[in-house]
Simulated assay, not measured.
Amino acid sequence: MSVMIYHNNRCSTSRAVLDIIREAGIEPIINDYMKTPPSHEEMLALLLAMDMSPRQLLRTKERVYLSLNLDDEKKTDREIIDAMLAHPELIERPIVVTEKGIKVCRPKTRVLELL
């Protein structure tokens, strides 16, 4: 089974999900999206596959969230995506991709649905 994780090593949940994948005997493709954010097209494809709006994938507890006025409900989807790509810490994590689907794995046990 092919598994890819959009991973942030500084996030305990992301590290825990990576451990669960490895404990299942799978060595995933690790996408360190903090260093290499997805393209705009990749982000749109992820959102579509997860049936999520950009706002639903937005981390609201990051400092940059308020500094960019992302709490303004008038922000367009394009503006939110652009902010997430410019500041990848705003992307909720971890996102796991398998042939069974794509999900934000919060709580960490949600990854089991994809393995």
Rank of each mutant, 00 (worst) to 15 (best):
S2C: 09
V3Q: 06
M4K: 15
I5L: 06
I5H: 06
Y6P: 01
N8S: 14
N9M: 08
C11S: 15
T13G: 06
V17H: 05
V17P: 01
I26W: 09
E27M: 01
E27R: 01
I30V: 13
I30G: 02
D32T: 04
Y33E: 07
T36Y: 13
H40C: 00
M43E: 08
M43V: 04
L44P: 00
L46I: 10
L48Y: 05
M50L: 06
M52K: 15
Q56S: 09
T60I: 10
K61D: 15
K61T: 14
K61H: 15
E62M: 06
R63Q: 10
Y65V: 01
L66T: 11
S67N: 12
S67K: 12
L68A: 10
D71S: 14
K75V: 01
K75S: 05
K75W: 06
T76P: 08
E79I: 00
I80C: 05
A83P: 05
L85I: 13
A86M: 13
A86T: 12
H87S: 08
H87L: 04
P88Q: 10
L90A: 03
E92K: 14
V96G: 08
V96S: 07
V96Y: 06
V97R: 12
E99Y: 02
E99K: 10
G101R: 11
G101C: 07
I102Y: 05
V104M: 14
C105R: 01
K108Y: 12
T109I: 07
V111D: 04
L114C: 02
L114A: 02
